[in-house]
């Protein structure tokens, strides 16, 4: 018990005692995961909407693939992104392995199916009759799709939460493609693994508190939007 109490005390000292390293790790994690979430929204929303509205022969197969993708193990993604970005790999020429950009790529790969799957479900909940009504009021197809997305905007916030939540706390891929390089690619989760391994529980506890507070704040903001229906 002492270990925990002392850990928390040390953590607070680290956070508010002028040590900049913890905060810079937090900032990097936030930047990387926010960028990856943004990319996954840009990919997942159109893909999910298209899958929900279009009818084509292999649709069932694609939907199953997306649902499988929602549970992609981060280490598997880490492995394949590493292979892609490896110096001799197909994208090796960009030389981004072991940079924050590599982590963004891997996290975007993890989050995109999550956003796609939830968008698919959210758009699918908007009744077909509503789409017909929009067309009957003179909507062009793009206008109709836009209105359907607008109508599904509240359940789609869940896509943002699930996407961001899934990657901010992810470790396997960040470790593999980022390398946990101090001051460069060290994120909250990779730092926690390292510090816990070294027995620096105070630092690990400080990081874990930050991570929890961060996830809480993001979800609280989105939940507030959802419940007050400000959108």
């Amino acid at each position: 018990m002492d270990l925990v109490v002392e850990g928390v005390r040390q953590a607070l000292v680290l956070l508010f005692g002028g040590d900049g390293e913890v905060w810079s790790i937090l900032l990097l994690s936030l930047q990387v995961s926010a960028s990856a979430t943004l990319i996954s929204l840009l990919i997942g929303i159109p893909a999910g909407a298209a899958l929900a509205l279009a009818r084509f022969p292999a649709r069932g197969l694609v939907v199953s693939a997306v649902n499988t993708g929602m549970g992609l193990p981060p280490v598997v993604v880490g492995l394949f992104v590493t292979l892609l970005l490896w110096r001799s790999g197909p994208l090796g020429a960009y030389e981004i392995l072991y940079t924050p950009a590599a982590i963004v790529v891997a996290q975007a790969v993890i989050a995109s199916p999550i956003v796609t799957g939830i968008t698919l479900a959210a758009v699918g909940q908007v009744p077909r009759e509503f789409r017909l009504q929009l067309l009957a009021l003179g909507a062009s197809r793009p206008q109709m799709v836009w209105m359907v997305l607008r109508e599904a905007r509240l359940p789609m916030l869940a896509a943002v939460m699930a996407g961001f939540g899934g990657i901010i706390s992810e470790i396997g891929a960040s470790m593999m493609v980022g390398g946990n390089i101090k001051g460069q690619t060290r994120t909250l989760t990779t730092a926690m693994v390292l510090e816990t391994g070294k027995g620096n529980f105070d630092v690990a506890i400080a990081l874990s508190l930050l991570l929890l507070v961060l996830i809480f704040l993001v979800n609280w903001a989105l939940t507030t939007i959802q419940q007050r229906r400000v959108l």
């Binding site: 009744p127 009759e129 017909l132 009957a136 009021l137």
Partner: peptide, 19 residues
């Protein structure tokens, strides 16, 4: 025929109002 579709309007059994 979007232009012609826009000269008509339908009301269905359900009001189907947007939020």
């Amino acid at each position: 025929s979007l232009a012609e579709r826009r000269r008509m309007a339908t009301v269905f059994q359900q009001p189907l109002l947007a939020d």
